[in-house]
Design a binder for these strands. Structure first.
Lengths: 256, 256
DNA sequence: TAGATTGTTAATCGATTAACAATC
DNA sequence: TAGATTGTTAATCGATTAACAATC
């Protein structure tokens, strides 16, 4: 699942699995870093390591896009940056609106990672009349009364909701009615949307709760097996982990 | 995947699958809402609907925790709140530190969903001496020089990184060296951690890129099949979606 | 040609789902 | 007893992984 279009198979038309789609941004970020260092080619092993996945998974993922590598050589960095960008739809401009300009909305408005990836903040919207007209991150805040006209004028199809939980569904309904078909939801609410609208949610408190679960397990384990099992002579020491949480799914970055 | 302890099977000791763990916070939130409305019992069907999953999945998930329901009746709301809280480790207090007090760090510091779920912000930490001593969300900001002593004094085992990407690995190393074993990373960086340390990441730009991918697909589809297929007489209209993105994994909330 | 590395296959594993027997 | 709803089974599906033939 994951798209809100749940009458369709998870694997779409050209058949890229959701889990693969969710990793393409990771590859793209690693490739962009290589590109900035003017590295011409990269092997699946190197790139996988930089992205925090294993190389078999990476090659399998790329195989859904096409045959963009050269056996014995690796992948051309620039070419792959372009192909993945195109696949993700980042070669076009996506105007977005952010609704709810509290601390978080302001943080997102200030986030530099948007523009560089084809996202453009078309407007900041808030229900507080006192905020309207103020500048946040160099962008004027507009009153929520103007929501519909902003969406239509700018051809916005992606909305970001950073309101309190109580306002989220109502804002969502208005966004959808005005033509938005993808929503990134930061409010602690399960949104109901019509078919054809995608919702993704980012939920800090859930992430912390998952960490607490594992933390508790570790504490329980260190009580029961206080003394670690001695390694057999010649046995490999546990390697440093590189896992970054559930890599089937999550998320993109956001520096302060 | 997902825990950073990658020498272990994904399914731990008492055997709760990761996908189930990631949904427990969703159930807990829905149950808490019911509890506040003094609803005494709830069926798997009702609760699943409130949490945005299907009831078979919910019952399967709960079966890993034990037999907490009553056939023919449903689940006792208060009892289930307690059991899930206990399972997630939320019946104890978890001191956390937030490192990097920019827009996002401040937003998190102001987030009310922490305390109510057993998380306590023990300290806000930043590298900027000008910030040290200032108050954010009623909590004094401390200089990063004090990081180690803060961790040790407060027994902090969970750290949140909201620094720019360039500083994240270094901050991570210091947190881990000081005793932190779970990290929530908002920086756009793949962190390398020793075995036994869990990392989860939240990455806004990745979420937007995934939405862009699907948005692009929708645009392509509406070009190729401009005219929607007429519904066969008597065929069910597409039902409103309830999907909230990949529910195997993601995230917790954060109102502005 | 020899070495390196991709792209693909096939096995395995974990997650989802529908169905229904158990039981309140 | 009849109705409701859980807990579990078994089938299905999607994702991961190792291995290796293809090929640069």
């Amino acid at each position: 699942m994951a798209t809100g279009r749940n009458h369709r198979p998870a694997t779409r038309s050209r058949g890229i699995p959701e889990a693969t789609v969710a990793r393409l941004p990771l590859y793209l970020r690693a490739l962009t870093a290589l590109s900035e260092r003017s590295v011409p080619t990269v092997s699946s092993e190197e790139l996988a390591s930089a992205a925090g996945v294993n190389s078999a998974k990476l090659r399998k993922d790329f195989s859904y896009l096409g045959s963009y590598g050269t056996r014995g050589v690796g992948y051309d960095v620039e070419y792959l940056v372009y192909q993945i960008s195109r696949e993700l739809g980042l070669t076009q401009d996506w105007p977005v609106v952010i609704v709810g300009i509290g601390n978080l909305g302001a943080a997102l408005a200030n986030y530099g990672g948007f523009a560089s990836r084809g996202f453009r903040v078309a407007a900041l919207i808030d229900a507080d009349p006192a905020l309207a007209g103020r500048q946040v991150a160099g962008i004027g805040v507009r009153h929520v009364d103007e929501l519909e006209s902003i969406i239509e004028t700018n051809g916005v199809s992606i909305g970001v909701i950073t309101t309190p939980g109580g306002a989220a569904q109502q804002v969502c309904d208005r966004l959808v009615a005005a033509g938005v078909t993808s929503i990134l939801n930061f409010a602690p609410t399960v949104l109901t949307v019509p078919d054809g609208v995608d919702v993704r949610k980012v939920d800090l408190s859930i992430e912390l709760q998952i960490l607490a679960f594992h933390e508790q397990r570790k504490a329980a384990e260190s009580l029961t097996q206080d003394v670690p099992e001695p390694l057999a002579p010649g046995a490999a020491a546990p390697a440093p982990g590189r896992d970054q949480g559930p890599d089937g799914d999550i998320p993109a970055v956001m520096p302060a």
